[in-house]
């Protein structure tokens, strides 16, 4: 199960944070700080997995942005690693050539997309088309 998802830039600014477990505010800040420190200095040639407390962080870097998923120690690492990429492909499709600024100014859209992709810490939909179509429906309602 995914415990939380973080999108952070190199400086450690949080661009998106979604927690599927109940954490206190102070704990969230701590987690965000620690995860950033953990992933930011890793060599690109290293694995995409790092142990984090009693869990594992699966992360991937796209330009200056780090996408990190915290999952259970026994979860399938590569499957979650590719779910990050699928999410990025969806964002890329939705914003047509996504960049960090898109995510900053449209953070609320990113939350919406994420809610169509992952729910209760589990993958909900893996079809890019289904999610993009769904976003289209929702845009019309606004």
């Amino acid at each position: 199960m995914i415990r939380f998802i973080l999108l952070q830039n190199r400086q450690g600014k949080t661009r998106l944070a979604k927690y599927y477990i109940p954490l206190e505010e102070s704990e969230k800040h701590k987690v965000e700080f620690e995860v950033h420190r953990l992933v930011v200095n890793r060599d690109p040639k290293f694995t995409n997995f790092v142990e984090f407390r009693t869990h594992k962080v699966i992360y991937r870097r796209y330009a200056g942005l780090f996408f990190s998923l915290c999952v259970d120690i026994t979860d399938n690492e590569l499957a979650y690693l590719e779910s990050i990429h699928l999410f990025v492909e969806i964002l890329d499709h939705f914003f047509s050539n996504v960049c960090e600024l898109d995510l900053v100014f449209n953070f609320h859209k990113v939350y919406l997309i994420l809610d169509e992709f992952i729910l209760a810490g589990e993958l909900q939909e893996t079809s890019k088309r289904a999610i993009i179509e769904r976003m289209g429906e929702l845009e019309k309602l606004e």
């Binding site: 699928l86 893996t126 079809s127 890019k128 289904a130």
Partner: peptide
């Protein structure tokens, strides 16, 4: 398996896992 559920040619790896 519908095309949209294959990922780089692999039928939903997540569902398989």
């Amino acid at each position: 398996i519908p095309q949209e559920y294959t990922y780089y040619g692999i039928p939903s790896p997540w569902l398989q896992v």
